[in-house]
Write a protein that binds this DNA or RNA. Structure first.
Length: 686
DNA sequence: CCCTCATGTCATGCC
DNA sequence: AAGGCATGACATGAG
């Protein structure tokens, strides 16, 4: 039994996957841990366990006894992705490999496997092996000869098969006495170094394909990373659109990539404990090298290199379209690690042209993903129906006679907190879609139930809803959300709290049922009506989508008159509700502005009063000064006889030429009277 | 029980 | 003409 052990690994969470393939007396145990940010060389020197004495010089390399346990997830390297200083340099290992005359440096686990297969004279190597394995193991791994495989679900991999314990069996095979050899390859940049060796083998073309695939994978990885970021902020309908487009691409055959998401989808369909016993090594090609700087302890076998503690729920929750998005913090050891970084494309032709992994994995992982989604939705719908009960005409009529009104189109989340606590506080967690107390709330709700009343629109069901129409519907809603935001100061609030709503799959149905009851109680009238009529849209969607999309959606679905009427009423009320909110807000703003104006005007009035008083004071001062001056002047005036002039009899009058005359007051008063009369006449004439 | 406040709904007019 | 918005009026429930 020989090992190809990765002398480096990358830190990360713990996803320990082991593939145990048994075939025709030659069992090949593949142990691989996938690190989320899988660097391109992650797969280099994959641990390869070749039991049965099938030795090959290619693997008689430097053993690393310190290598960790086989098939176990081990603690992360404390320094994350830093290379462990104890790890042997890549060059040294490469030299060792070359010195051994290995014609083909295993660049990936698969390569190594191929090398081994060729060296062991297994004909077409792993291609044949895997193909035969897939063909022979009708029940997938379950047909394998070792106990691990038997524990796996049969029947081609029912996603919800019974739990098994492959890890235990896998560990039985691992004994400390087993010789351990290590193969390292530089991968990425080192792959160029090994090009000469590769050309001697079919690995030459293989290497090119790998590089191509690697570049493709890098693209895919980046794309998926961006998608993840976007989808995290996108409304549900956009997320669904993405999922739909993926499905479409898949169905059109334009996308042949095999991503690790898909693998997780598959693995998530297996019992959780099976995850630890399944290796992905043979199906996961090397990943892009942009992040390949991580070298960890040699004691970290490949289990650590790609370790991510992902269980069934997370595999579902973190599916690519982000439909089921849960707060990963509680369970993922490294919450910041983007799950989708695991994505890597898989070219079915490389490196195993013709290899059919169907025995273990579906040929087309997208099918699996799609099927899994459908299954999940089916399950959810069933649960929904089970908890909600079936359609009840009495309930409907009762709902429509309800005097209370509260369409659930609560703007409270953005305007006030009172109504949040009033009606939407609980169903924001359980069934937020029906109301639109917040965007994310409806988003989450829609993700899980897709419609009011937990009804997810599906083809050939109650309403003729196809994924495309729903996606278009969501897209339109998203668009409308952008363009139709006439709300006043409406800010999204408390959407984060709704993340709890994504924890459905991980919660017990009991909790959910209880939540459902609470939700029903807190549903608005329109929500309850819509739910009773099984209207396949959320109230939020009905209200917020543009009229074109709205009409198109109505035309695309078969809806009864009652449903149509209710939908239109919901939309009208919802629109009006928003308008009323805005109107009140405006009114309040007007009132506040008027109050401000009143305050400002009052302040201005006070200021003017003070200025007036100041002016009066100044006038009085000036008047007093003039009076004093007047008397002072008269006191100095003398008539022709030298006698003082009496100010009561005479007055000072300034002429136009600037001279000052002493005029008897009688003349002054008569002249003033004449001037006043003239002025009056002029004014009258004018 | 009454009042106030917030909110939903309807009717109506306008764009 | 239809749809949406704005707004007054009224109803309802909570505090």
């Amino acid at each position: 039994m020989k090992y190809l052990k990765p002398w480096w690994s990358d830190g990360g969470g713990l996803l320990h996957l082991t593939i145990l393939l048994s075939l025709a007396g030659l069992r090949v145990d593949l142990d691989l841990d996938l690190y989320l940010l899988l660097p391109p060389r992650t797969l280099l020197g994959d641990e390869l366990l070749l039991p049965g004495g099938s030795t090959s010089p290619a693997y008689a390399l430097s053993p690393f006894p310190a290598l960790g346990g086989w098939g176990r997830a081990e603690p992360l390297h404390p320094k994350g992705r830093e290379r462990d200083p104890a790890a042997p340099p890549e060059g040294q290992l490469l030299r060792e490999i070359r010195a051994l005359g290995v014609p083909f440096i295993p660049r990936t686990r698969v390569d190594a496997w191929l090398v081994h297969s060729v060296a062991a004279g297994d004909g077409d190597g792993a291609h044949a092996l895997l193909g035969a394995a897939a063909a022979s193991s009708a029940g997938g791994v379950g047909a394998s000869v070792d106990g691990v495989s038997q524990a796996a679900p049969g029947g081609g991999g029912d996603p919800r098969a019974a739990p098994s314990s492959p890890l235990a069996a896998g560990e039985e095979e691992k004994t400390p006495a087993e010789p351990t050899a290590q193969v390292s390859d530089a991968g990425g940049h080192a792959s160029e170094e090994n090009e000469g060796l590769r050309t001697a083998e079919r690995g030459s073309q293989h290497g090119e394909n790998e590089r191509r695939a690697s570049a493709q994978k890098e693209k895919s990885l980046q794309q998926k990373t961006e998608d993840e970021k976007k989808t995290a902020e996108r409304p549900a309908w956009e997320a669904e659109k993405t999922a739909e487009s993926r499905n479409e691409r898949h169905q059109n055959g334009t996308e042949t990539s095999f991503s690790l998401e898909d693998l997780f989808q598959l693995l998530s369909s297996q019992p959780e404990n099976l995850l630890e016993g399944i290796s992905l090594g043979d199906i996961i090609p090397p990943l892009p090298g942009s992040i390949n700087d991580g070298m960890n302890s040699p004691t970290h076998n490949f289990s650590q290199a790609i370790s991510q503690d992902v269980n069934l729920h997370e595999a579902m929750l973190l599916c690519p379209d982000n439909v089921f998005r849960s707060d990963p913090a509680p369970r993922i050891s490294q919450p910041q690690e983007p799950f989708l970084q695991l994505n890597s494309t898989f070219n079915p032709e490389q490196p195993f042209p013709g290899t059919n992994l169907t025995g273990f994995l579906p040929l087309d992982s997208q099918d699996l993903l799609y099927d899994l989604d459908i299954n999940i939705f089916d399950e959810i719908n069933l649960m929904s129906l089970a908890t909600e009960g079936s359609f009840d005409p009495m309930e409907v009529s009762q709902l429509f006679e309800e005097p209370d009104s509260d369409s659930g189109l609560s703007l409270n989340s953005s305007l006030s907190s009172t109504s949040v606590t009033k009606s939407n506080s609980s169903h924001s967690i359980c069934e937020g879609a029906i109301g639109y107390s917040s965007d994310l709330e409806s988003l989450s709700q829609h993700d899980f139930e897709g419609a009011v009343g937990g009804y997810h629109a599906e083809p050939s069901k109650l309403c003729h809803t196809d994924q495309r129409s729903v996606s278009h519907f969501h897209e339109a809603l998203a668009f409308q959300h952008i363009l139709h935001n006439h709300t006043y100061h409406i800010q999204p609030s408390a959407p984060e709290s709704n993340s709890q709503s994504f924890s459905w799959p991980g919660k017990s149905q009991k909790i959910r049922s209880r939540c459902h009851n609470d939700t029903d109680r807190n549903l608005s009238r329109d929500e309850r009506r819509a739910k009773a009529l099984h209207i396949p849209f959320s109230v939020d969607e009905i209200v917020r989508m543009p009229v074109e999309s709205f009409n198109g959606m109505l035309s695309r679905h078969y809806l009864t008159d009652l449903q149509l009427s209710l939908i239109r009423d919901i939309r009208r009320r919802g629109k009006n509700k928003v308008a009323a909110q805005n109107c009140r807000k405006r009114k309040l703003d007007v009132l506040l502005n008027l109050e401000d104006d009143v305050c400002n005007l009052q302040a201005k009035k006070e200021t003017l009063k003070r200025e007036r008083i100041q002016c009066h004071k100044a006038i009085n001062i000036m008047r007093q000064k003039l009076h004093d001056l007047y008397h002072d002047v008269f006191s100095r005036l003398r008539d022709d006889e030298g006698r003082p002039v009496n100010p009561s009899q005479y007055a000072l009058q300034c002429s136009q030429d600037g001279s000052v005359l002493i005029v008897p007051k009688e003349l002054v008063t008569s002249g003033h009277k004449k001037e006043n009369e003239k002025g009056k006449r002029k004014r009258e004439k004018n």
